Simulated scan of single mutants.
Amino acid sequence: MPLILCLASASSACLLLLLLALELQLGRAPRLGASGSQERPSGCSWLRILVPAYNEHDNITDCLGAIVAALPPDWPIELVVIDDASSDDTQALADSARLACLRTDLSWRVVQAGPRPGGERWSGKNWPASVGADLSWPGGDASSQWLLFLDADVRLRPGVIEAALQEACSQGSDLLTLAPRLECSCLAEWLVQPIVATLLGLGFPIRRSNDPDDPTAFAAGPFMLFRYSSYLAIGGHRGVASEVVEDLALARKIKQANLRLRYLLGVDLVDLQMYRSLAALWEGWTKNWFLGVDRNWFKAAGSVGVVLLLFAGPWVAAALLLLQQLLGGAVMPLTAITVGASLVLVLAIRLWSSWRFGTPIRFWWLSWLGAFLIAAIVPASIWKTTTGRGWTWRGRLLEG
């Protein structure tokens, strides 16, 4: 079989399987909808919302504004921003937002995380998250107190607080986490994030994560709602202090302790924009990718192969077919049809995402470029993670 037909056939078959798997695993996965009631569940005596922040000049004001707008009235809620020694004006902006807030029913603190303990390894936001969780509580007992950890690049929509707590209390959840809607602004995000969302959805199936008898566990770090007593039982962020991908580690600890993990789609209520430039995206994914596959070289190489076959293969086949035609070679109808079908299936994946999650199909024809960018990210992630060289987040060096 000619090379072009082989490549297009393999890509088409895998894309079709991917589309079916997406519909079965994500299209029909449980999702959280806005609550029709603002009544506080009896299992919640107090909610503390924690926003660890490090150099979040571009995000902190909008994040806090969205949180305040989403809060139900007259609930016992405390909002805590923990600044992790930012070198920009993150703390000043958080203080300004607090002073400008007109809600008198909201307890609000902006605190400094302070230096990390000497002789201990604390990665990423684990230290400020732990500092915020250790603050004294205004009231309630641990079994009815809840901690909601939010990243500063999250934007909440009204109704999400009520819905998340009502769901967690009714289901007896110890950790409820929501997969947010990924927002893209720069070209680099449009190239990479839709592919990454697809891989995450299939690599960490929601139904398996929700099955107490299945060891699969996943949590989306941007939105994690813990029952405080359960958070303490697994050691909290202190128990995963050295973990760079702490959300995955916390989810695994919850399941290992025979506690209840609840993982839902939150695309109707939580928005997330992770990166604003190619440089930020490169730094972020080269930090996390190899860790996300448990430092497994085989999984890392496999992820590159899968991405290239699915999202670059059809375009490479089309380019080779066009080149063959320009050079005067004969083009078999079956080859042309198969190449065309593979390109249609690439578009079908994005159309499915638009149908199910409202994701625009913008720049879908550049999926090949996104695939090649990921193919460059993965070996860079392996190098940084194993050597520690250039392994940073916002310029702050991480330890290997």
Rank of each mutant, 00 (worst) to 15 (best):
A13E: 12
T177V: 12
S230D: 12
T216P: 05
A197V: 09
D174L: 02
L334Q: 15
S35I: 06
G400S: 14
Q38R: 05
G328N: 10
L93N: 10
L202Q: 11
R295N: 13
Q171E: 14
A163E: 01
F357T: 12
A94M: 11
S123T: 13
T338E: 07
Y263V: 05
P128V: 09
W137D: 14
M332A: 15
L7W: 07
C63T: 03
W285M: 09
N126V: 11
R260W: 02
W190K: 07
R356Y: 00
G292W: 08
W122P: 05
A330W: 14
Q324K: 12
V339C: 08
S209N: 09
P194I: 00
A94I: 10
G36I: 01
L165E: 07
A330C: 11
D62S: 13
G239A: 02
R238W: 05
T90E: 04
V160K: 06
E23S: 03
C63Y: 08
G114D: 08
Q145K: 07
F298T: 15
Y54P: 00
G33S: 12
I206P: 06
R208H: 07
W137E: 15
L99N: 14
L102N: 12
A10R: 15
Y263F: 05
E189R: 08
I77H: 09
W365P: 01
S123A: 15
I374H: 06
L26T: 00
A375L: 04
P73M: 04
A249Y: 03
L366Y: 05
C184K: 07
I49P: 06
A371V: 02
N55P: 06
A217S: 15
A336T: 03
A188K: 01
G358F: 12
S242R: 12
I382K: 00
R389S: 14
L165F: 10
I337Q: 13
